[in-house]
Amino acid sequence: MSTNLFGLTLGQLRAFAVDLGRPTYLGNQLAQWIYKRRATSFEVMSDLAVPVRKQLQELCSLERQEPTRVDESRDGTKKYLFPVNGKFIETAYIPETDRKTLCVSSQVGCKMGCLFCMTGKQGFQANLTSAQILNQVVSIAEFSQLTNVVYMGMGEPLDNLDAVLLSLEILTADWGLGFSQQKITVSSVGLLPALEDFFNRSKVRFALSLHSPFDEERASLMPVQNVHAMDDVLDFIRNRQESDVRRVSIEYICFAGVNDTPRHTKELVRRLHGLKTRVNLIHFHPIPGTPLQGSDSSAMERMQRELSAKGIAATIRRSRGEDIWAACGLLSTKALTVPLKT
């Protein structure tokens, strides 16, 4: 079986070169070709000797996977569907005036079972490899325009931490894709101790999915609360912020009458005390069969005002791509059950 070199870090490529009986610097050359010049075959690697290229062709591959479907919203948002071992993952391209963001998946399906999430309805199918995560970035037509990458698609990134960290290393390295660490955000429900490992081994931004400031109410939305309490997660972040300057944000999907009342805002302020953070208030993309309704704009604006009045920066994230099933999991779950139009 050939080794796919796409998705390997510089260290892994150097080690692979040594395993082939070649000098370490072959790994540097490969990294340049694979990530800087995005070569898809060994033939084009003109500064490698012909016998080396031949050996690489025999033993290795540079596998990429093209998306099998792309839907474009009226607002310019695009939803890509990539096949992975007979299942599907989704990737969303979100263009705005000042930034072009790509939302990538880290798993096929998800184990977390959040009430408001369509991906959870698939159950957990598989972890993505670093190559499968990075493939979503480099295999879309808009790659060269991307300014930001967010790990907010299907799956829980901290439940697949090793592959996520490898992909982050390649995304941000000078020898890799060269994204600024300030332009990448990993979003999580907050798994401990994986979160500590993530903070120790990366410098990218972090977003915590909170969605309710009350323990029992959060548990009814997010089963993870019964295992890793939000207080433990917030305390960990608070302590780390004494020495760690990365931006941490709070993700908060607003559900009408469920988590958008003044009582919730007041408790949210109390919970976030001492934390350097901003709150992203997010419109809910309805999913089939959900008992939840999205808050209306006035309720979200009131929450924003109340948070701001207490010194907590809050933004309302615009809803994007609703006409193309842009909420994560909607398209791939549909693809699992009905034939897709192409």
Partner: peptide, 9 residues
């Protein structure tokens, strides 16, 4: 709100 869940992970 009357359904409490724990999942394997």
């Amino acid at each position: 709100s009357q359904i409490v869940a724990e999942v394997y992970f």
